[in-house]
Design a protein around this nucleic acid. Sequence first.
DNA 1: CATCGGGTTCAACGGTCGTTGAACCGTACA
DNA 2: TGTACGGTTCAACGACCGTTGAACCCGATG
Lengths: 115, 115
Amino acid sequence: MTRDQLHPDLDQISMAQVLHGFADPARLHMVKTMYELGECQCSLVYADLGLSKSNASHHFRVLRESGILRRSQRGSQQYAALRAEELEQRFPGLLASVLSNIDVAEPDRSAPRTQ
Amino acid sequence: MTRDQLHPDLDQISMAQVLHGFADPARLHMVKTMYELGECQCSLVYADLGLSKSNASHHFRVLRESGILRRSQRGSQQYAALRAEELEQRFPGLLASVLSNIDVAEPDRSAPRTQ
DNA sequence: CATCGGGTTCAACGGTCGTTGAACCGTACA
DNA sequence: TGTACGGTTCAACGACCGTTGAACCCGATG
């Protein structure tokens, strides 16, 4: 059976909050992975990111508290999945546009910063 | 004539950066105002937000450095405008979905926090 | 000249963020 | 029983964020 953790009602989440949840390169990568894999084991989500366990746990918490993903436990394993339908209902089109732009070419970091 | 300030090339802006630029209630409000008014005087953008001058200037800087708006000076007045077309080209659909969700009902802050 | 208006800059503050490492927890398996 | 695995929690750290108030800048206007 699925035993849920603490997840906010999406009606309690503001636009600024969910945008903050997305606004990190590691978390964007995790979102992309979950989109591609569907519900999957947590360790798969950050496998190729080089995050420490505690750091990954932190980002999972931010994503969960932003309403972006749902975690559940089945047997001895934890799973994670995007709350895609709920997000679509609360913020129509937002997840889709974030997903479709995650792979946009990263800027050239060797160039000098502005200002 | 239009004299520009320091604005990053949008190719230098990452998805995470622009999302961070949007991820603040005051800045979302400013974005909405600029969308409704088009290019307009800066003071109009934060008129009904209760921001101090220096705080507004700070948020203008964040929005500018995130590539979200362009500032210009004509005569003695400063103007601000969304970089809508450039954003659309770099992150297709993103600005539109943010704009269309800014007015989503704010969550009920009287409810207890999760965790 | 002075002064006003619209913005910027600066230092300072309290709070939060991302990251780390170590300790811990629960389940599974030897 | 022990021990390994997958995660969480905690304290700590340096960095950054949002906000404030005061000082400053500069073009326009008296």
